[in-house]
């Protein structure tokens, strides 16, 4: 227990990094996932094809491989650099990997949401002269999003936990810090473990509650 108190600043900083990874990747994945969903329902076969290939490739590769590719492939081989600081650079590379991976799941969730919007909504929108893009932006996607708030919450929870894989390229988020503390405090492994586990619950349980509440509040009455 003393170990937890003694190392509190380190643990706090580690979780703050976990939170930043989650928020940045979540936002990027939401934007990219929405674009992918729009591509997958577009009338242009080439866009549909790109969307389909992306989702099926990325979704079926283990996240560890995606992150390691971002760290080594992008970072070392292609020399993609966001910062002179190694740790900041690794953070951004891992955000790219987490976003790219999570976007595939966001896309499929939104596509499921689009399927809940009755055909007549899009037809009525076309009938007053909205273009395909306007139809998607003003009529179909707003209703699709409201239908999939709860599943998007699940994806955000999964993302929060998936940020631990950034440890594979040396990003000092919560799980990597936990391992480091295990080594420094061999006699306090169990309290440290429970401390970190509790930290994740504190992050993820409210996400589930918030998104469940939002889903009810924002539901479209038909």
């Amino acid at each position: 227990m003393e170990a937890l108190i003694e190392e509190f600043p380190v643990i706090r900083d580690a979780f703050w990094l976990t939170i930043r990874l989650t928020l940045a990747s979540g936002l990027a994945a939401l934007i990219l996932g929405t674009l992918l969903a729009a591509m997958r329902v577009s009338p242009l076969p080439i866009l549909r094809g790109i969307g389909t290939v992306y989702v099926n490739a990325i979704r079926n590769i283990p996240l560890t491989l995606v992150i390691v590719f971002c760290g080594l492939g992008l970072g070392v081989v292609l020399n993609v650099s966001f910062s002179d600081s190694l740790s900041t650079n690794s953070m951004w590379l891992s955000i790219i990997g987490l976003s790219a991976y999570t976007a595939a799941f966001v896309c499929e969730s939104i596509r499921a949401g689009i399927n809940t919007v009755p055909m007549g909504q899009a037809e009525a929108a076309r009938a007053i002269g909205l273009t395909f893009a306007q139809n998607l932006r003003l009529i179909v996607l707003p209703q699709a999003f409201r239908a999939v708030i709860a599943p998007l919450g699940s994806i955000l929870i999964a993302l929060t936990k998936n940020t631990t894989i950034a440890a594979a390229i040396g990003v000092g988020e919560a799980s990597l810090t936990m391992k480091t503390l295990f080594e420094a405090h061999g006699d306090a492994v169990v309290p440290i473990f429970f401390g970190f586990a509790l930290g994740f619950l504190v992050l993820t349980l409210p996400i589930g509650l918030l998104f469940g509440w939002l889903a009810k509040r924002m539901a479209v009455a038909r």
Binding site: G120, E123, A124, I128, R222
Partner: peptide, 15 residues
């Protein structure tokens, strides 16, 4: 389409 109004059997108001 903007010049041709359409009224559907199932109304299709934007929900």
């Amino acid at each position: 389409r903007s010049e041709v109004g359409m009224v559907f059997q199932s109304f299709n108001l934007f929900a």
